[in-house]
Design a protein around this nucleic acid. Structure first.
Lengths: 208, 208
DNA sequence: GTGACTATCATTAGGTT
DNA sequence: CAACCTAATGATAGTCA
């Protein structure tokens, strides 16, 4: 492998950072490198957020390979205890029951209420949309849509679109990742991660 | 190389970003503002990390006021279950229950999360993109969007619920579509609807 | 509390070593 | 493969509407 003699006076050592689109990085190598860099940056952000704003933050990341990393202030477990009970105890069950019974009361009503805020925001956007004309084309790529629940009958088209998109997005994510999750789960099983402290919260790093 | 900035005839509207130390922000107001901004940035990073590297990411943030926000790809519960040490009691048990409840058919519960996602997304976008192409949104909203195989818009809440549940069970085609669309919307920067999943994955916003 | 701005600081994509 | 480098992109502190 012949190496070129660097010509420092003429050639730039680097093009510097290039803009990239937020989509899966195809190159296995580049993806790995990016993961390492961004994971570090991500945890740093978590740390700064917790310190600057006195907020409690927990973050867990699973690498494509199945290794688990995490950050938690005060600790991941602690925050999960606070976060989970609320959504798993009575809420979900109650919601579900209500849906089966009348499909429009209780939680759904609340959902709709909250939707009012969102709607307001969307409205605000429309109000500000003065300069914009182009590519209605992309739309086609969107494919088919599917608005559901939350009393869609009362939503404006815009809201329906937004909601449907969001819904699909979530489901898409779940479906698309189901297989990998399964694989990961089987692959990693559950091994106790090593724990280290990084500045503020706790970092759990995987050991190989 | 000290260079004095020549006194500009016109005063700068802002000094721009200033460097700050990573320590609790004393000013109540400044802390709140910072929290909002950084929380958004934090979730965005989480989203990008999960997309770029195909990594599974979950993050939970509690504001000083006690409100909880979260991001999870595929979902917070799902990842937590993978992360938490096996323990048939306490947290793990609850986590599992919650996951089952939500995944088993709690569409509304899921919708509630989607709502949060949508809101987060809108919030994130208002900050910088809408001025470009709201036109598309309008056009689309005009009523030219293609419905799914079933006309969910005419379904009763019960029917929607059932349909939604079925969808969650497995809609490969839809998932693919959504995924593609999401990618386009998110990465390209010019998405049709006012919706972006800030990645994709679920956002849990605080319940009021 | 949120949106808009802008100058700056921070992060990181691509290469190199 | 990780540590360095450089330069361009991205995030955001400070301020005002």
């Amino acid at each position: 492998m012949a190496m070129q003699v660097a010509a420092p006076s003429r050639r730039r050592p680097s093009l510097g950072r290039q803009k990239i689109e937020i989509r899966r990085i195809e190159s296995e190598e580049a993806r790995q490198v990016c993961f390492s860099k961004r994971r570090a940056g991500f945890f740093k952000k978590a740390s700064e957020l917790s310190i600057l704003c006195s907020a409690d933050v927990a973050a867990v990341v699973f690498s494509p390979a199945g290794k688990a990393y995490s950050f938690g202030h005060p600790s991941v477990e602690c925050l999960l205890e606070r976060f989970l009970p609320d959504s798993s105890s009575g809420a979900a069950a109650r919601v579900r029951r209500g849906a089966n019974n009348n499909g429009g009361g209780g939680m759904v009503g609340e959902l709709n209420r909250q939707y009012g805020e969102l709607r307001a925001m969307v409205e605000a956007h429309k109000a500000r949309r003065e300069r914009a004309d182009e590519k209605i084309e992309m739309e086609r790529a969107a494919g088919r849509w599917l608005p559901m629940d939350a009393d869609v009958r009362r939503m404006s088209p815009e809201e329906l679109m937004a909601f449907g998109t969001g819904l699909m997005a979530g489901q898409a994510a779940v479906s698309a990742r189901a297989d990998q999750m399964l694989r990961d789960a089987l692959l990693i099983g559950r091994r106790p991660p090593t724990t280290t402290t990084a500045g503020f919260g706790f970092f759990h790093m995987p050991h190989y």
